[in-house]
């Protein structure tokens, strides 16, 4: 496999210029993700409005894959309901780990399409953790509930 198949332009772009890369002062939920293997850290901030994700953002330091994955995640999850976000996480996780992808509602097809450039990590088992780090932090942030609670998530 060629490096360009993993590092597609969209990944390089989001890696260099991550979207929603900031702290969210009004966050209702947040969690820290940590990959002890490489020392990468990400903090995911959520602003929930009922069961809808009104806003989300992230900051931290990481490789191009983890940064791009976090950035794309914030783009697709903004405005989603928690049920939709959960379905997207399950679908994305299955895609990058090479498992059977669950059937997703048609309304989410376009979002899955947006995450597709990350599928290249499937060929790099050691890099799957990079792609899922922010998503695990997102999940932890949901569980954490009240603002300010902090959990270090492990990966895979």
């Amino acid at each position: 496999m060629d490096a360009r198949e993993l590092y597609q332009d969209i990944i390089l772009d989001h890696g260099r210029h991550p979207r929603n890369f900031r702290e969210l002062p009004q966050a209702t939920n947040l969690a820290h993700g940590h990959n002890p293997l490489c020392g990468d850290r990400v903090t995911v901030y959520l602003e929930l409005d009922g069961d809808r994700i009104k806003d989300l953002s992230f900051d931290g330091r990481g490789c191009a894959i983890s940064t791009a994955s976090a950035s794309l995640m914030t783009e697709v999850l903004k405005g989603k309901t928690l049920a939709e976000a959960d379905a997207l996480f399950k679908g994305f996780h299955a895609e990058v780990t090479g498992k059977a992808v669950p059937r997703l509602p048609d309304a989410l097809a376009e979002d899955m399409e947006r995450l597709a450039p990350l599928e290249g990590v499937r060929a790099y088992p050691t890099r799957v953790k990079c792609a899922t780090l922010a998503w695990h932090a997102f999940e932890a942030a949901l569980k954490n509930g009240a603002a300010g609670t902090v959990a270090t998530v492990k990966t895979e």
Binding site: M1, D2, A3, Y7, G15, C38, C63, A64, I65, Y124
Partner: peptide, 12 residues
Amino acid sequence: IHPHDLATVLDQ
């Protein structure tokens, strides 16, 4: 360039 990105490309 993050070391892991660099090492992945070197591996290529």
